Computed example of a mutant assay.
Amino acid sequence: MLADHDPDYVVIGETRSYGFASITTAIRLVEGGARFLVANPDEKGPGAEGSRPATGAVTALSERVTGRPPYYVGKPNPLMLRSALRALGTHAAHTVVLGDRMDTDVRSGMEAGTHTVLVLSGPSDENTAAQCPHQPDRVINSVTDLTEHVADPFRT
């Protein structure tokens, strides 16, 4: 249930319609004692005309004002992936996390024990990847390149 009076949690997730009033309300609720949950720390995402602010940017604003760091319930929290694996009835060793961010996608997969593939079509490039302490199992330029790495049982 959504409430703007004495809620247990304030949750920030991805949307393209953040407004000053809703951000201010969230800040006041966190200052009032609501627990602060956030989907992911992605600071920017792609837009038709270039970068656009994402969840992490709004979170940074809220955290700076309140002085309270959030708890990230989504990537890179490995609990999210482990819960998904459990729900799907599969094992991390048989799973691949495909993503375009080293700091969230690849890190999340690595921490959950899955195989990881970095796609260079997003914010992380080969230089970013080389500087990270965690490394993807494979790096590809585009998701279209993924077919080169997957056995096709119907190919003759």
Rank of each mutant, 00 (worst) to 15 (best):
M1E: 03
A3C: 05
D4H: 01
H5K: 09
D8Q: 14
Y9N: 11
G13R: 07
R16Y: 00
I23K: 06
T24A: 11
T24G: 10
T24I: 11
T25V: 09
I27A: 08
L29F: 03
G33H: 12
P41Y: 06
G45T: 15
A48V: 13
S51E: 12
P53K: 08
T55Q: 13
A57K: 04
T59E: 08
T59H: 09
R64I: 04
T66G: 02
G67W: 15
P76L: 08
L79N: 13
L79P: 02
L79D: 14
L81N: 07
A84G: 04
L85N: 04
L85T: 09
L88C: 14
G89M: 13
H94F: 02
T95C: 10
V97A: 01
L98N: 04
L98E: 03
D103W: 08
R107A: 04
G109C: 07
M110S: 03
G113T: 08
T114A: 14
H115N: 14
L118V: 00
S121R: 10
S121E: 06
S124F: 01
D125A: 02
N127R: 07
T128E: 05
A129F: 01
A129Q: 02
C132P: 00
H134R: 05
H134C: 04
R138P: 00
I140Q: 02
I140Y: 00
S142T: 09
D145S: 12
L146V: 04
H149E: 02
F154A: 04
F154W: 13
T156M: 09
T156I: 05
